[in-house]
Computed example of a mutant assay.
Amino acid sequence: MNETYSALAAFAQTGGLIYFMILFGIVLAYALWPKNREKFDDAAQIPFRED
C-alpha cells in the first residue's frame, strides 16, 4: 500500500505542476495577446479618471 501511495503522490505532484504550468501559459498568452492590449490599457487608466 505504501508504494501505491508514493506512486499516486508523485503522479499528483507531476500532474499538478504540468496543469498549473499550462494554465499559467494560457493566462500569460491571453494577457499579452496584441488584440487585448487596448482593453487592458483602458482598464489600467480607470483609477486616473475623474468623473
Rank of each mutant, 00 (worst) to 15 (best):
T4Q: 05
E3L: 07
I26S: 09
V27S: 01
I26Y: 05
A7G: 01
G16R: 00
L8T: 11
L23P: 00
Y30Q: 10
P34W: 03
I18G: 01
D41E: 15
Q45C: 01
N2E: 10
F24E: 08
Y30T: 14
L8H: 11
F11D: 11
A7Q: 04
I18D: 03
W33G: 02
P47I: 04
V27M: 13
N2W: 05
T14A: 12
D41V: 08
F24G: 06
F11C: 03
K39C: 05
R49K: 15
E3N: 10
A7W: 02
T4G: 01
T4P: 00
A10D: 13
G15D: 01
L8F: 10
R37M: 06
A31M: 14
A43P: 01
F24I: 09
L23H: 08
F11V: 03
A7I: 05
E50Y: 08
I46W: 01
F20Q: 06
L32F: 13
D41Q: 10
A7E: 03
E50P: 00
R49H: 10
L17C: 12
K35R: 13
A44L: 14
D51Q: 12
L8D: 11
D42A: 14
G15W: 00
I26E: 01
E50R: 11
A12K: 07
E38L: 07
L23W: 14
A7Y: 00
K35M: 04
Q13H: 10
D41H: 07
A44W: 03
D41K: 05
N2K: 04
Y19I: 10
A44V: 09
P34C: 11
A31S: 08
K39Q: 08
T4R: 11
L32Y: 13
K35V: 10
Y5R: 13
